[in-house]
Amino acid sequence: MVTTVTAGNLTVRNRRVGLMLALGVVAMVGLAYASVPLYQLFCQITGYGGTPKVGVVVEKATGAAAERVMTVMLDANVNKGLDWEFKPQVSKIKMPLGEETLAFYIARNLSDVAITGTATYNVTPFKAAEYVSKIECFCFTEQRLEAGEEMPMPVSFYIDPEIMNDPNTKDLENIVLSYTFFPSRKTASVETKDDNS
């Protein structure tokens, strides 16, 4: 019978299409997971969301850029889950373009136990972030403070003179470098006994 033959073919064809669609679904789930590292990478490369660059050494400024002084405001936040005080040593610094500059925050553990914290950071305006390069930063690693301990938190960074060639940022004279300290999630943040972190 004609219909039976068609039905047999149809089952095979249907399975083939169904299989291809299933592969598409798997690929899209994969894409969702791939977006996690891709998103981070994208932020780091483009400065998206105010993510500054890390460890990129830039040229010294020449010409007009050499005369530009950028005022950097140092912003500090402590998440409510962390019993620390965290403040910039000075709230604003002025720095020339293309020169490595060292700034300090000061953190103090207000509790009576050792606590490990970790800091997130970003730059505003977001458009300026791709021109900010950090060489060394307390935010690259977790920080552990003993009970009542007070510690300076250094960060050294450049501002790329290229910032003056970008129409979005060429008139910019004020940027903000912001940090937020959280209790660490990787290391048990509150420890009662000493260990080597």
Binding site: V26, M28, V29, A32, F182, R185
Partner: peptide
């Protein structure tokens, strides 16, 4: 929908199994 499924799974593991897809401190 697979993207939602992926994101929901990440949220679920963030909530229950210690991952940090959406958790800032992690």
């Amino acid at each position: 929908l697979p993207v939602l499924a992926g994101a929901l799974t990440m949220l679920l593991t963030d909530r229950n199994f210690g991952t940090s897809f959406f958790i800032v401190e992690g």
